[in-house]
């Protein structure tokens, strides 16, 4: 069976140690974490963890069950195959030599991102989008020279019925 990317959206008690229970479950059972994003929800007692893992179907079924078993896990949604929106944000520090500045700003324009910091030799860009868009802009910026990058990891939600 082939491994596939799965996005899990996990609602948990907003308490110390809960993230470590989840991370420990993944490391202890040999599952992998591709990306992880955690923040409080509207209810301050609840946090949402969006986690991306690579696994085949039986393994991801087992992961979901194991997560449910943790006392502090309230709900687990598996988003793969469902109708959902996903976004990721990145801050990209790109080398900005005078001859490249126009080119960078053109890319910023096309990808509808923002320049959030400008220096002598760099621009810092704020980009949001799905994975396809992230990959595309990184591919374009790479030849110009990426100095540093920080990404949030994917966050995702179900789409409501129209």
């Amino acid at each position: 069976m082939t491994e596939q990317k799965h996005i899990l959206s996990i609602l948990v008690d907003n308490q110390p140690g809960v993230l470590s229970r989840i991370a420990g479950l993944f490391s202890g059972r040999g599952y992998n974490i591709e990306s992880l994003s955690v923040a409080e929800t509207m209810d301050p007692l609840v946090s949402r963890i969006t986690l991306v893992t690579m696994a085949d179907t039986p393994v991801v079924e087992q992961i979901v069950k194991q997560l449910h078993k943790l006392i502090n896990v309230i709900k687990v949604y598996e988003l793969t195959g469902a109708n959902y929106v996903q976004r990721e944000m990145a801050l990209i520090k790109v080398q900005a030599k005078p001859e490249h500045r126009a080119e960078i700003l053109r890319i910023v324009d096309i990808f509808r991102c923002k320049v959030v910091d400008v220096g002598q030799g760099h621009y810092t860009l704020e980009v949001t989008g799905d994975e396809g868009k992230m990959d595309a802009i990184l591919n374009l910026l790479k030849p110009i020279g990426i100095k540093e990058i920080a990404k949030t990891g994917i966050i995702a939600l179900f789409r409501e019925q129209k």
Partner: peptide, 8 residues
């Protein structure tokens, strides 16, 4: 009673 036991 433990769903994780099934199909593990």
């Amino acid at each position: 009673i433990d769903p994780t036991s099934i199909r593990k």
